[in-house]
């Protein structure tokens, strides 16, 4: 119990302007994401945003803009370019960066490329480890970044369900047991020497939330998300788009034109397409509502190895 006030405390009347309804879930998620951006920028010295060109990255950029508006983003964007991305992604990336005045930095593991790194020649595991995981760690080290924002969501797969909004990576990656407990919004962003933090402002967003937000905010995304006639071949039940001449066709295999779209984007030889006629956002949303297969079904990497993301997490990747 409190001691009595020495003098009368003027009344704090219930505020008639207060909207009695609970905040809608999207505005609640938005407020939380903005809070994360600001907290990391306030507490760390050299943050960077990992930019993957996908729809989640587009949303991430919009939220960061809202966090710091009318100031420009107080950190650069880093894209790890494997050189095997869809061409439409690279076109979009460069235009998006220019339109939004973003400080975009691109890093490629050229040494590995010179050794012939390719998803076809090396297999998805080794290729991903060298061209993405190692390349990312190299780029973070070279840039001296102490914090990296990523667009991962916890609903993407089971091993991500436990990812913290702020998580610490030491030089050797992390184990699930030494994660720092934090309470609510109070997870501290302070990091020790040699450590860097990963921040995931979209942790609590679901795929559907992201699509709804893109709709509400009219956020630009790569056209590959919309159905269009595209050249594809089918392998092990997965539709792969033949995006350039580097795609090695098997004897007797020839690309055919199908109307497809992509639910996630990555390196084109590792990203499966979905047969769909959804060419507009309302159509995609309707497909989502009726969805029967989850987003990452299209990614070959996951089929390669059970709990692949957890293994990557130990290596310091996302």
């Amino acid at each position: 119990m409190n001691a009595l006030p020495a003098d009368a405390v003027p009344a704090h009347e219930p505020d008639p302007r207060v909207d009695r309804r609970r905040l809608s879930h999207l505005r609640a998620l938005e407020a939380e994401s903005i809070h994360v951006f600001r907290e990391v920028v306030a507490e760390l010295e050299r943050p960077v945003m990992l930019y993957s060109i996908g729809k989640d990255s587009s949303v991430l950029v919009r939220l960061a803009q809202k966090a710091f508006a009318p100031a420009p983003l107080p950190f650069p964007l880093l894209h790890i370019d494997t050189t095997w991305k869809f061409r439409a992604m690279i076109d979009f990336r460069d235009r998006f960066a220019k339109d939004n005045g973003l400080d975009l930095r691109v890093h490629t593991n050229h040494a590995a490329l010179a050794e012939g790194a390719s998803p076809f020649a090396w297999g998805s595991n080794k290729y991903t480890q060298v061209m993405k995981t190692h390349a990312l760690l190299d780029a973070l080290r070279a840039g001296g970044y102490d914090a990296a924002f990523g667009g991962a969501r916890r609903d993407e797969e089971r091993s991500r369900a436990k990812e913290r909004v702020l998580s610490f990576r030491d030089r050797h990656g992390q184990g699930p047991k030494n994660q720092r407990p934090g309470c609510g919004t109070y997870s501290t962003a302070r990091s020790g020497k040699g450590e860097s933090i990963r921040a995931f402002p979209l942790s609590n967003w679901t795929e559907l939330d992201v699509w709804q937000y893109i709709w509400l905010e009219e956020i630009p995304i790569v056209p590959l998300y919309f159905a269009a006639p595209r050249p594809v071949v089918e392998r092990d039940g997965v539709l792969l788009m033949v995006d350039d001449e580097r795609f090695p066709l098997e004897p007797g295999e020839s690309p055919r034109i199908e109307t497809v779209r992509f639910r996630t984007l990555g390196c084109y030889p590792l990203t499966g397409a979905t047969r769909s006629a959804a060419a507009t956002l309302p159509e995609i949303l309707r497909e989502m509502i009726e969805a029967t297969s989850s987003e990452r079904q299209g990614r070959l990497i996951d089929l390669d190895e059970e709990a692949s993301m957890e293994a990557k997490k130990r290596e310091g990747y996302f």
């Binding site: 609970r22 879930h25 709804q212 509400l216 507009t280 309302p282």
Partner: peptide
């Protein structure tokens, strides 16, 4: 429709009304 939004008027209206319902949902 070439842009991001809208094809048939009906479908557009259906999705928009669904989105409105979603907006009213709390967390």
């Amino acid at each position: 429709g070439g842009g991001a939004l809208g094809s048939s008027a009906d479908e557009h209206a259906a999705v928009v009304s669904w989105l409105r319902e979603q907006e009213a949902k709390d967390l």
